[in-house]
Design a binder for these strands. Structure first.
Lengths: 193, 193
DNA sequence: CGAAAACTTGATTCCGTTCAACACATGTGG
DNA sequence: CCACATGTGTTGAACGGAATCAAGTTTTCG
């Protein structure tokens, strides 16, 4: 459970390349997967110094089954997680680089807002361009070019490399083929039922 | 719940391209996601004529919470589902076309065996090459070339376009950078704890 | 059998990679 | 405080894997 900072889950494939599987921020339970499924199929890593709370596996299971409401919430958490994975499959598999980056910028925009870590149209990018590359299945060089393109098109502004300002949110979302449905947010809150 | 035949989950992205998100076969519960999360973020489709059993959402929830063992099994099912999604993200994001196809061939090999629908080194491919393309984020033409390459290299044999025979399983798995861990099978059975 | 669907193959194009410098900030030890 | 290392971001040139376009061929199935 992340209290502050950012975490990622990733895998290293044969050629030594890395794929970032998901990005996690304050208030999210990163590792229910590895808790219930005994063998871990990926690695978890903090991006920066931050605080996490550890909860024993046995406590989790106990809680889940003694308190149905909590159990359901945890289950739904894993389902939302899977939903985001599916959108990433589609994003990486079928969108070109510029669209892909725009899509991720939109996802982060909304999720950071929900976590209380930024404004919907102005936030601090938690990832380096190299990490963005590993998240989108691109190279750092091409990530840079895609960001520069979005900037040149006026879809985003950047006063420093990591600050993202979205002038017209709707326009970026359209360009990035972004529909927030897959995040399963309700009234700007994480889904609970 | 699929009794016979094959189903896929897919999404259509902006440009009209399709991404297949997962492939499902006999004995699998396809749609727990859409059951618990009210709004559906993707489509489900049968690939061929087949039988399915429908179970009411209310029954699912009731069962899950009144019978902890069943509830846990369903939860684990969704976790394995997510684990496969993650491997697909890595497969599509960071492996080249030939490796990617080889990897999928290995996954299908094992899963079809578990479902009792084929031998580990000889099975009938349930997808057309166009569907393989939509599953791997490639074009049909390039899928064909990749398969032909694997055949030319002696990693697979095909007496008809859809029959896959794997001469040396270990060799194909190595080429496809395949490690079955993410499927969370135990003794060739689906994981239950 | 005949038509549609699926598969195969060739030629060409292009998006994203690779290789290579360089710019710029931050920090660190002498 | 400067010299220098290090990580991150930026830009250019050339290359290459996969896409696209276009024609066949084979398989499937009503």
């Amino acid at each position: 459970m992340i209290l502050s900072g950012f975490a990622i889950r990733h895998k290293i494939v044969g050629g030594g390349h890395r794929q970032i599987l998901s990005i996690h921020m304050r208030g999210e339970a990163v590792d229910l997967q590895n808790t219930l499924l005994r063998t871990s199929d990926h690695s978890v890593q903090m991006l920066s110094r931050g605080d996490v709370a550890l909860i024993a596996r046995s406590k989790i299971e106990q809680l889940a089954f003694e308190r149905p409401a909590v159990g359901k919430a945890m289950w739904i958490d894993t389902l939302v997680d899977a939903s985001i994975h599916r959108e990433w499959v589609a994003n990486i598999g079928r969108r070109d680089a510029k669209t892909r980056i725009a899509h991720l910028l939109c996802e982060l925009s909304l999720r950071l807002k929900v976590a209380g870590l930024g404004d919907q149209d102005n936030y601090e990018m938690p990832l380096t361009q190299e990490q963005l590359a590993d998240a989108t299945g691109l190279t750092p060089v091409h990530v840079n070019r895609s960001i520069k393109y979005l900037e040149a098109e006026g879809l985003i502004e950047r006063i420093s490399p990591r600050s993202i300002t979205i002038g017209d949110w709707r326009k970026l979302a359209d360009f990035g083929d972004f529909n927030s449905q897959y995040l399963h947010l309700q009234d700007g809150e994480p889904a609970l039922a």
